[in-house]
Design a protein around this nucleic acid. Structure first.
Lengths: 147, 147
DNA sequence: GTAGGCAGTTAGGTATGCCTATTTTAGTGT
DNA sequence: ACACTAAAATAGGCATACCTAACTGCCTAC
């Protein structure tokens, strides 16, 4: 019973000189940063490093580092000592992540009856783990049940 | 809207001179190793490093490394160049992990109708993410539905 | 009894993601 | 104008979890 290779596995076979500008899926962590930036933008108009840090419960240097990666992929704009802005593409992805998050949370509260707060934190984790078409099963089950 | 601190966060506040022999929850990865060892033990009587490596799709050195950690926590017995055996405690945990895995898989296939193979790989990921009492909601929902 | 071969270990390295401590910068108040 | 402060960036580290390459030890076949 052979199990699939791990996600994080290091595959030096096909070397990839350039940084993963596009393509290559975002890590769970970077998705979280995008989602957090979206939320901070909404509540504060402009996103600043410290707000993002507070939102995610990480240190500011961690945010700075993540922003560098996201900027490298063209998902955020971020001038030194300046504000953080989602690019069009970054915004699109952030919305997508948020959509998944809400769908999962709805399932957990609506179908399973898990309390709000627990559903929230669980959704945070599930949203990075469920493949899109797997998530679709959750969504359509919830929908069928509502009908 | 403050989010909880990340799981992997480095918390040097309370220093911990000794290695995490007991206490401290196992990482997802180490749980996977325990589960894999259990399965290999069942199919081969004795677990060997290469079988565990094959089972998980990782290299042999990765297994050796993980075994060192698990042995340090008293969860496996592992003589250099010898067989790997789960201790009583390791066995208990491995069973628990497997139980969670199966419960999740049952939910995915039985309730949501997700196909076997996809349910299997999804369960692998969910099993490390769902808190015990959250999992209980999944289980009891499936049960209520069966009735 | 010894030579190979293969399982297993060690050595060393990469990637991610986080941290603290320290420095730099920009904006503000006087 | 300039000093101060608070935010942000660097520098340097640690933990986890992988990898490849190279070495070691065991066991078997001759």
């Amino acid at each position: 019973m052979k199990v699939l290779a791990r996600e994080g596995a290091h595959m030096p076979g096909e070397v990839q000189a350039l940084p993963p500008s596009q393509a290559e899926p975002l890590s769970a962590s970077l998705e979280d940063y995008l989602e957090a930036i979206l939320q901070v933008e909404r509540s504060s108009r402009v996103a600043r490093v410290s707000e993002i840090a507070d939102q995610l419960g990480v240190s500011r240097p961690s945010v700075t580092g993540a922003l560098k990666l996201l900027a490298g992929r063209g998902l955020v704009t971020h001038a030194r000592y300046g504000h953080v802005t989602l690019t069009e593409e970054g915004f699109r992805i952030a919305l997508e992540v948020e959509r998944r998050h809400l769908a999962i949370k709805d399932f957990l509260t609506g179908v399973l009856g898990i309390p709000e707060e627990r559903a929230e934190s669980t959704a945070c984790k599930l949203e990075h783990v469920l493949e899109p078409d797997t998530l679709a099963y959750f969504v359509s089950y919830a929908k069928g049940r509502r009908r």
